[in-house]
Design a protein around this nucleic acid. Structure first.
Lengths: 333, 333
DNA sequence: AGTCAAAATGGTTGCGCTATCATTTTATCT
DNA sequence: AGATAAAATGATAGCGCAACCATTTTGACT
């Protein structure tokens, strides 16, 4: 096996200079058609593939976007990722993805690692970075987008929606429907879940009539199965009084719904259920589950677009972009 | 904003040579503790981050693993990815991920792009690559793993299981249970789905007693909703005769199950349902769905380990690794 | 103290490519 | 045809780092 062909090898085969080959690859318009064809043939013939490291070093453009999400297994981030990938493709960039497992410390390490790739943009989830991480990011001068939630003091750009407001709204939805013994089921308890819980509490505190609340949370990661366990827990804690539950996401809500069948509870007659994120299954189970929808795919896309337009070094402060959310009312409430 | 600090800047601050700084970063054991501490402080102080492109160019080690999956949205590949990421972390590597949308041509382009990163290993899904893609991969000399299914002529290494056998087994399971009018619901119809269908047909052809089969497929991508539609379709085609369906994955199976409720069909009395992939929801719905489980996470992990041990240039042909599968029998059949 | 091996540190060079500038060729006009 | 601009091509240098080899320092032993 010969060693990998380089620019010079292509140049020799095509009978041109190395720099011309380089141009064919990055600025085809600047080369006459005759030479371009010759070079392209040579490239294909010897299976030449440009050395990205050398190219990035010489050109100071890595063609890479760094992305950190808190969890690969959570389908919510998957949707965002798909949006990111779809947008990145247009710009001929590569994504380097990190999973920080909801840990700011792990995120800090990841940020350092990913910065070494000299990414042309950085997409972070949430606004909960360590100080050192923020320092590194700021010093890098790279455009940065923080996704999913809104921040008063974003590192650079910010796009998301208010999980607090969504929590308030969905809780009010339950209250308006006449439910008065509300449970909150929370897993993981990351910052966004905490904000939803804060919204839940706020809505109840502000409500003019007497009502009860039962909060059951765990730091375990979310799953359908866990939803069933948490429903059991909230029913135990409320001694069977609880008549509606706000689940911090749709996985829990689905699990809670499945559990009601085993407990012989009617939804929504005996107990109402609402979730968060509006997964496909929530609309198709029986009864369908009320949930909170947000434009995740579009958020991912828009994040990339923001990065691309921002590389123009305008250090003007950009206001956070609120993509909003929508309460999808269904039979479960 | 000053330009990014480099090795020399750190060296100046720490009062050592550049190469010593480099060693602290890559071979800390080779440096005395005194200097190491000084250098580490300097690195942290000025927020130095190594330039990956330069490092990769000089050392000829990119620290990157390339991965191509057919779909980001399919949770099945998500599991594999998680396994890959968990293993990659141990080895201090980065993943560069591509989504080829089930298209060999798109995959070919991705392979060329990702090869330019000089990855130290390449993980592909399936065995359906174009000739030129195979040429590029072979010529690169990089260790390669093809995942998910087994191949007679793998490019390099191969780990997966037989979707054909799984299709045969699950169909036989239905036949043994006494069902005789079997439907197959297929979406996407990628190679693995086709193999499952082939298994379905084989089992029916080999069965000693008379039985009927109804095959309904579409190239649309799979979803829960589609499962409901395909169930409608197979019931229409069989004029209500169909008494069991093998869904090519659990999304379809869930959708089919939800649809039976709307159609007032009892599962498994009126119709049996089985799926593929054993998603969490399948075990928790009522009735729980029979499915085929496979060690996806472990497959991902093992793929990375294979790549890492294989970089030793042993060009011996390695036999495919069959990780097997398991039929999980539940109430739906 | 003197010898030698081993460990620690440093200097030089080149990885493969592209930015920059210099040069040559081609096209356009009077 | 000659003058000028514009397009196409080429030569050189350097991006930031680590491999390689040279040198210095340290430690272990007689």
């Amino acid at each position: 096996m010969n060693k990998k062909p380089n620019l010079k090898d292509v140049a020799k085969v095509a009978g041109v200079s190395a720099i011309t080959v380089s141009r064919v690859l990055s600025n085809p318009d600047k080369v006459s058609e005759k030479l371009r064809t010759k070079v392209e043939q040579a490239v294909h013939e010897i299976g030449y593939i440009r050395n990205h490291a050398a190219s990035a070093l010489a050109s100071r453009r890595s063609g890479v976007i760094a992305v950190i999400i808190p969890s690969l297994s959570n389908i919510v981030f998957n949707d965002v990722l798909q949006g990111i990938y779809s947008a990145v493709k247009q710009h001929h960039l590569q994504v380097v993805l990190g999973d920080c497992h909801y840990s700011p410390l792990e995120e800090e390490k990841l940020i350092a690692t990913l910065l070494s790739q000299s990414p042309e943009g950085f997409i972070l989830t949430g606004t909960d970075q360590t100080d050192y991480a923020r320092k590194l990011l700021q010093q890098s001068g790279i455009p940065i987008v923080q996704l999913m939630e809104l921040s008063d003091c974003p590192i650079d750009m910010n796009i998301g929606f208010s999980h607090f407001n969504a929590g308030v709204d969905i809780t009010n939805h339950l209250l308006q429907k006449g439910y008065r013994k509300l449970g909150f089921l929370g897993a993981r308890m990351d910052t966004r879940t905490q904000q939803r819980l804060a919204g839940f509490k706020k809505a109840i505190a502000d409500f003019k009539q007497p009502c009860q609340s039962y909060v059951v949370t765990t730091t375990q990661s979310s799953s359908i199965r866990l939803g069933g366990q948490l429903l059991q827990a909230v029913m135990a804690e409320s001694q069977g009084q609880c008549d509606a539950v706000f689940c911090c996401n749709d996985d829990l809500a689905l699990g809670a719904l499945f559990e009601t069948k085993r407990m012989n509870l009617k939804v929504p007659a005996d107990i109402a259920i609402c979730g968060f994120n509006d997964l496909e299954a929530s609309a198709l189970v029986e009864p369908a589950i009320t949930s909170v929808a947000s434009p995740r795919y579009e958020m991912g896309q828009q994040a990339v677009e923001l990065l691309m337009t921002a590389s123009g070094k305008d250090k003007t402060h950009k206001p956070p972009i609120d993509v909003g959310y929508r309460i999808v009312e269904r039979a479960s409430t």
